[in-house]
Design a protein around this nucleic acid. Structure first.
Lengths: 230, 230
DNA sequence: CGGCGAACGATTGTCGACAGTTGACAAACG
DNA sequence: CGTTTGTCAACTGTCGACAATCGTTCGCCG
């Protein structure tokens, strides 16, 4: 059999719980479902035209990913994001990507650096034409590529979890007004340091890069902290 | 109302899926359930006297923790551990605990160092009386304490996942014959470096400590690599 | 005798219904 | 009027049954 559509076949035959989890995950990280919002099983199930069983299993997946929170007999809500959560997300992300970066540099394959440079150039092009959405997407791609190049599946799994929630955080902030070009420019010295095999410099730059965006986000977060309850 | 039994109440009322997950998790990390072993839903359910629904949800939890692997329409098996898995486990563990260590040292609370020293002394005492089981348990406690002291809940969650699988790896190796006292002694310089606030040294020692045990384990793993199928 | 295809058994995926728990509101008591 | 207790509705937890899928085996044909 040809390989044609082998991926698509799997998509069609994929268990309902996974497709539902994907849909809900996307809705959460894009901010369509807001933190604190209650997800009632029966309501969502009939709305999606499915039974509660696969929906509950999808909830569990999202719960393990930290996107929702389930309290016994009390229901499931989209997890609220506190300032502490955000600080933890970005600090752990920094540690994880530092680890990935070290592995990539120590392997020292020029093809890896080339791949990252290509990412950077795509990002730059998107920035030049003012496409903020594309810049953000390619920014994610850049970091994902770094993780993949580290060839560490366990790390990739953990990073995926963290990245999802970072995406959620960014989606919840109403259209950041940061200098779009600056985002792209920030990645250049990192790419160069990797190309030169300068581990110490690359690590320093990456940590500064992540920490600065993290601080920026955390600072803006005081807006949606304490909401009055009923 | 008095606080009587508030903890017990929760334990008794905990959802079945969690109690089942706990039981299966324990069975897996202690090696009672062996890698590759198939877990048939109907069989286990009737054996435990429960329905398949909560069992399936327990499977999902374990799947997210990396302890089992579920293939659609093919069933759930205890995840097999390859040498690559072990290398990834220990290298990630090293990176995560390094991160925790840095946070603890940078906070610089003497009470933290004292707590770790107490762990070390307990471990030493257990080693002196030749109690290997206790030494292993306190060793886990030492590392868990380090994580908790970093006050980083997200990190704690990820570390917990990794630690579980490390426990499984250690349980699967037939009674390591390492020098029991050496395990305890290895922790002393780390504690001292923390007490002195010497971050660079502490990190170096911790990484060497984890890497060495990881290498030791990985080396012994060639025994159970390729088993013939059927 | 070997290769191919269709039925079979075993197992998982999904569903609808029932049982148990929680929080809130209302009624009774001091 | 404040506190306690009874009741209820909404929701989650659990169950048993039916549908879909996979690997295998058996039979058929070349």
């Amino acid at each position: 059999m040809a390989e044609v559509g082998s991926a698509l076949q799997h998509i069609n035959n994929r268990p309902l719980r996974e497709r539902v989890a994907d849909m809900l995950r996307e809705a959460i990280v894009t901010g369509e479902l807001k933190p604190g919002q209650q997800l009632v099983e029966m309501e969502l199930a009939s709305q999606l035209g499915i039974s509660r069983a696969p929906l509950r299993e999808a909830f569990q997946t999202l719960s393990q990913e930290g996107l929702v929170e389930t309290l016994p007999y009390r229901g499931t809500i989209v997890r609220k994001l506190t300032r502490t959560d955000i600080e933890e997300l970005y600090s752990l992300r920094s540690a994880l990507e530092t680890f990935a970066l070290q592995r990539v540099i120590r392997r020292g394959d020029p093809a890896d650096a080339a791949k990252l440079r290509r990412c950077y150039e795509d990002m730059l092009a998107a920035a030049e034409r003012g496409d903020l959405k594309a810049v953000n997407q390619i920014d994610r791609e850049f970091h994902n590529t770094l993780i993949e190049l580290s060839r560490h599946e366990l790390l990739a799994m953990v990073c995926n979890m963290v990245s999802l929630r970072v995406r959620q955080v960014m989606a919840l902030l109403n259209e950041r007004n940061t200098d779009i070009r600056q985002i792209a420019y920030n990645h250049l010295p990192i790419v160069q340091a990797i190309e030169n095999g300068n581990e110490a410099l690359a690590v320093e730059l990456l940590q500064r890069h992540i920490a600065s965006s993290g601080d920026l986000i955390a600072e803006d977060w005081k807006s949606s902290e304490e909401e009055p309850d009923s």
